[in-house]
Design a protein around this nucleic acid. Structure first.
Lengths: 191, 191, 191, 191
DNA sequence: TATGAATGAGAATTCATTCAT
DNA sequence: GATGAATGAATTCTCATTCAT
C-alpha cells in the first residue's frame, strides 16, 4: 500500500510527486488513497513512520544486547547499512525529502533523537567499561556525530548501486571505532 | 540580492518557495527578479553557486598551506563550521534543498567532489608523512566519510542557534583526527 | 464542447482569448478544459479540425457526383456559403485566426490543399468534356484563385448577417463560371 | 522608423510581437517608441495606414486614367501584385494580422472599402461603354469579389518567393476579365 | 465500497507601459 | 531628448482535494 507512495516520493521528491501518480502506481483510484491514508502530508508522514520503524526494527534485530560494545556497534552498523542497501527508496524518502521539507523536520527530528539516544547509551556503557572518567552530556553530542556520519555514508551508499553494504559498514567501523577507542582511552586532540 | 532568495529557499524549501515571496522579501517586484536572475531554477542554481563559492573561499582563507596536516584540518574545520554558523540559511539551501531536488543533485555533486578531493589529498599527505604504507584509492572513501560527517554536524549546527561553531569544530576534530591518527598508525578494527 | 472555444476564439482572436473565458462560456471550470482538450494550442487545433471537417462534409453532402460540372460547382458553392452563413464563428476561426498564427498555418495549408485539388479536378474534367486542349498544371493555379475568391466572399458573408448565402453563391457562380466557361472555350486575355 | 515595426509584426504576429523586439530592431529604446508612436495598438494602426497608403499610391501610379477599362485593370493589377511582391512583409501585416485581430477589423474595412469603390467605378464605366443594361448596386458586390480574389492571390504570392508578380497578374486578368467580359456582354449563368 | 468527473486556489512567467535620471 | 530600471496586471497551466454516482 505505502510501497507505491514511497516509490513515487522517492523518485519524484515530495512536491513533484502527484497524488495521481501515487494512485496509479498503487493500482487504485485517487479517492481511495485519500480514504485510506488521508492528505498528502499525512501520507508522507505515514511513509516516514513506516520506514523509520522498519529501520529501527532491523537494527534492533541485528544487535545482541549481551555482546561487547564494539560488537554491538558492528552488528548494528551492518544491519543499518544492509537495510539501507535493501531499501534505497525508503532511505531517500526518509532523509532527503524529509529534511528538505521544513514542514516535516520536526517529525524527523523525533525519530533521529531516539536513535541517537541508543547510540549514546552504547558509548556511555563502553566508557564505563573502560573506566574512562565520564564526560556525560557529551556522549549525546558524539552520538550525534556518529549518527550523522552513518547517515551520510548511507546516503552515499543509496546512490551507489555497486557498493556493498558490508564493505560500507566496515569502513564506518574503522572510521568510528578506532577513533572512538582512542578517545575513550583518554586521548584528546587539542589546538 | 541573492540573500532574499537564499532566505526564502532555506525557510520554505525549493518548491514551496514562491517567486512572489522572494520578490517581496527582496523588496523588489517579481519581474525584477526575473530580469536579474532568470528562472526559478536559474535563481536556485545562482544561490547554490554563490553559497558554495563563499564557503570554499572561507575555508581556503582559514587554512595555512604550510602548516602540519592536523593543523590544516583544524583550521579548515573551524573556518567551515564558523561559516556555516554565520550562514545557516545558505547551508540549508546548499545541503538540504539541493540534495533533495534530483534536478540539482548534479550541480551539487560536482562541488562536493572538489571538496572531497582536497580532504583526500590532506589525508594522503598525512599518511605519507607518517610513513604508513598507502592504500591509495581508499583515501577518497575516507574523505567522503569525513566530509559527510562534517556536513551532518554542520547541518545540526545550522538548526541549533545556541551551539558554538568552535566547539563543534573541536568535537569534529576529536572525532576525526584521533580516529584518523590511529588508523594511520596501522590499527584496524576487524569483525 | 468545442462550441464555446470556437465562439471565443472567433470573437477575441487566438491570443486574446483566455482559457478563463473559454471555460466560463463553456460553463465548466478551467481544469476541465485542460482535461478534455489539452493545451490552448491543442484546443485550437481541435477547433480547426472540427470546423474543417464539418465544412468539407457539408460541401461533399451538397454535391451530386453525377451532375454536370457547372451544377456540381453550383451545388458545392451553395453548400459552402450556406455552411459559412450558419457557422460564421467557425469560419472566422478557420480563415482568419488560423492564417494569422504562423504556428498553425501549416495545419490549415494542408486542409486547403485538399479542397484546391478537388476544385482543380472539377475544372480538369470540365475542360476534358469541352475538349479544350489541356494546360494541365494550371488548373491547380486556377483552383487556387477560385478558392481564394470563395474564401473572400465567405469572409465577407461572415461579417454581414443580412446577406443571403444563396445570393452570395449565385454571385460567385457568375463570377467564376461565366469566366471559366469562356476560358474553357479557349478564350484568353492578352496584354 | 515604422519599418522595424512592420517587420516584427509581420514575422511574429501582432500579439507575439513584443515592444522590446520592435525597439531593438529599430535601434532605439523602448520609451522612444512610445514617445514617437504611442501605444502598441496605435503603432500597429500606424503601420497599417502607411502600408495601405503606399499600396494605393502604387496602384494609382500604375493606372492610366485615359486607357480602356481592361487596360486600366491590367495595369492596376500589375501594380498591385508588384507592390505586394516587393513588400511581402507589409502585406502580411495589412491582411493577415489586421484581419485576425477583431480590434482592427474596422480600420481595415474602411481601407478596403475605398479600394472596392475604385474597382466598382471601373466596372461601371466599362458596362456603360459596352452599353450593357446596368444592374447598378451589384457592381460593388462584383468588385468585392474581385478584390477578394486579388487579395487571396496576393496572399498566395506573399508566401511563394519564386512566383513572378507579372505572371500572377496575368492569371488574375484571365480569371477576372474573361469572365467579366462575358458578363458585360450580357451572358449570365443560371441555376 | 470505489470512482470518474469536477474545481478552487495558486504558481511561474511575460509584457505593455511608465518613472527617475 | 533619451534610457535603464521598475511594475501591475494578466495568462497559461497544475494539483490536492472532494462530490455524485
Amino acid at each position: 500500500m505505502l510501497d507505491a507512495a514511497v516509490r513515487v516520493f522517492s523518485h519524484r521528491g515530495f512536491h513533484a510527486a502527484s497524488m495521481d501518480e501515487i494512485a496509479e502506481v498503487a493500482g487504485i483510484s485517487k479517492p481511495m488513497v485519500y480514504a485510506y491514508l488521508g492528505t498528502k502530508d499525512e501520507l508522507f508522514v505515514a511513509c516516514l513512520h513506516r520506514e523509520a520503524t522498519r529501520l529501527m526494527e532491523a537494527v534492533a534485530a541485528g544487535v545482541l544486547p549481551t555482546a561487547k560494545p564494539d560488537e554491538q556497534l558492528w552488528h548494528g552498523l551492518r544491519a543499518f547499512f544492509t537495510f539501507v542497501g535493501d531499501h534505497r527508496d525508503g532511505w531517500r524518502v526518509l532523509y532527503r525529502q524529509a529534511r528538505s521539507e521544513p514542514h516535516f523536520a520536526g517529525e524527523l527530528a523525533g525519530m533521529r533523537a531516539r536513535i541517537v539516544e541508543v547510540v549514546a547509551g552504547l558509548l556511555a556503557s563502553a566508557a564505563t567499561a573502560a573506566e574512562v572518567p565520564g564526560r556525560p552530556g557529551d556522549f549525546t553530542a558524539m552520538a550525534y556525530a556518529y549518527v550523522g556520519a552513518a547517515e551520510s555514508l548511507a546516503d552515499w551508499l543509496a546512490d551507489h548501486e555497486e557498493e556493498d553494504p558490508d564493505h560500507t559498514a566496515t569502513r564506518m567501523m574503522n572510521f568510528v571505532w578506532v577513533g572512538a577507542d582512542s578517545l575513550l582511552q583518554g586521548r584528546v586532540w587539542r589546538a
